[in-house]
Design a protein around this nucleic acid. Sequence first.
DNA 1: TCTGGGGTCCTAGGACCC
DNA 2: TCTGGGGTCCTAGGACCC
Length: 422
Amino acid sequence: MNKVFALIDCNNFYASCERLFRPELQGKPIVVLSNNDGCIVARSNEAKALGLSMGAPYFKNKALIRKHNVQVFSSNYALYGDLSHRVMRVLQDMEPDVEIYSIDEAFISLPAGNNLAAYAKSMKARVEKYVGIPVSIGIAPTKTLAKIANRFAKKNAQHQGAFEIRNHENSDELLSTVGVGEVWGIGRKSTEKLNRQGIHNALQLKNADDQWIRKHLTVTGLRTVMELRGTSCLPLDHSLPTKKSIISSRSFGSPVNTLPDLREAIATHIAIAAEKLRKQKSAAGSIHVFIYTNRFKKDTPQYAGNIMMTLSQPSACTPTIIKSALQGLERIYKPGYAYNKAGIMITELVPQNHLQQNLFCSENIENTPLMATVDRINTRWGRNTLQFAAAGLAKPWGMKQAHKSPAYTTNWPDIPVVTASF
DNA sequence: TCTGGGGTCCTAGGACCC
DNA sequence: TCTGGGGTCCTAGGACCC
């Protein structure tokens, strides 16, 4: 049986999450800020209409925000994760074939047929009823086209949040209205290349020369072109999301100069990442450590240090990994610079075997022979700060979180299991 | 001074995504 | 004063081997 893809995408997800608890903000402009209140990472439609753009630095837009009385929230990832989970559960109750693509998006495989848009609307209604988050649904023969269909569903009110693209029926005309840079998989660099080649919209990309695309945009680009033509190259991915690398990094609230302070930061990042590592039952083979000065301050001395350390054997043990990471740090640290960001990436993740499980360290950091570094962190930040930092709830190193959200309660009734009737 | 060809593996960096 | 964080995939080129 022929299959099509549906892409379910939550509208302005973080903003919608915040608004769920502040219904009086319905129809009002709101924005959500990134970690450290640095950038705008989510906007309600009203905020978009004011010209506030995605990723824009908060401090540059303060005047505009004040002028229009835009509500501002610091991000609360624990809340967004919880609501995301609820949205996905509603979808999984309705359909067996769900790929959770990101915190606010899911692909679903559906048997091709008539009236798919009507079915999608019932799906949308169910999510909104049980979770309260508005979603848009795009349906098409390929994932890339479903992304575009989703855009039409979202942008054109007459579609009521659900829209289908069918091969050879309406696709070419629609594609000619989509800028090439808006196609999924075509970023800034590729857009420039394509524009120079006279390719400006998705229809032109669809009809582009295969050889040229292969040469200049690699196989990834060619896959995108095939998908625009209706040939599905990106299947639904049900695999358990076992990560291949784990990153923890942060900008500092104020510049950091000394090795002890950087040691604290690196040790903390390792503790956070190692916990995630153990959660997915993996062990790490190598560790990257990096420290950066502030790249936006062009008039101050710039330095970027990074180093990769290979462990003698894969480990999931926090102190072991910290020890290597700190050795790496000593090698890249240069005094006299104002550091603005530090972080680590652990890679070469392998499944834990029995041996490694025996080497396992307690989840509770305080019970491990962990060095004084972590003790110092605990003293400095207060009890349990590590856990809170991991959940994005605390702002170490003098970080600010100016726009406190209200205390949330999420003990809602369980979502009833429904039988799919399709 | 001349100075193969082919294969694999690894790494850094680019590009993209949310 | 204040510019996020966490991921994946692909490729070119170097190192190394025979």
